[in-house]
Amino acid sequence: MTAPDVRLQPRKKGLTRTQKRTLSRGAQYVVFVAAVIAFAVAADWGRLKNQFAQWSIAKQMFPDVITLALKNTVLYTLSGFVVGLVLGMVIALMRLSSVGPYRWVAGIYIEIFRGLPALLIFIFIGVAVPLAFPGTEIVGGTYGKVALALGLVAAAYMAETIRAGIQAVPKGQMEAARSLGFSPARAMISIIIPQAFRIILPPLTNELVLLFKDSSLVLFLGVTLEERELSKYGRDLASTTANSTPILVAGLCYLLVTIPLGFVVRRMEAKAQEAVK
């Protein structure tokens, strides 16, 4: 006679699975609520409000924070995005090329610019390039420098995204195009790339959000009053007023753009998911 299977025996003591789960979930809620209460009680709300939510200071930021700072942030971001997209496309195509040296150059570029902090690139563009090529001026002044610095960084990421998008287009599409008499380049431009962009629209929009935030690095280029973007504008005002409210307002301005963009990305991803089904 074999021993009875323990698992089939009714539990003598202890909790059932459901009871355990309820208990553990309950404990998590208690810890969370306690932490919030502790934070709320311990924080000096008066000083916090003084430092971060001075209505009068916030009011004097308008309309400049929008018409100047946010406008410049958007301008820097878009120019960097365009440079990144064009350069990224070239690098992606080089990466997919049948010519070895093209692939190597593209691979090296991607590894370097993905591995370096964006801040270093900004300093490099702002300091090293003028030293290396005395007398030369980057076209577009600060705007040109920012577009170049942001574009160089973005291109590395976008190149990989675009490459993945191109490779996600079924092989039969290229075959169909080629057998209709398209040259490889024409097939790429007319047939493959339009389909690839549909696929990579969500990650490209994400890249736009990242660039939007990275545009704050303009801070390190040394800009004129007219060229300030959100972070620089907020920090300058914070030091002149000796108050952090401008930082909070600048932060809200970023969120004003990034949150809707994030929403758009999720919508696109959901739609793409549906299309796959």
Binding site: G172, A176, S179, L180, G181, S183, P194, Q195, R198
Partner: peptide
């Protein structure tokens, strides 16, 4: 080859229409 292929039509098992 592109010029020659213009004279040769090809129909695939998977159709390969351009979906966009």
């Amino acid at each position: 080859i592109d010029a020659v292929r213009r004279r040769i039509g090809m129909v695939f098992q998977q159709f390969n229409l351009f979906p966009h």
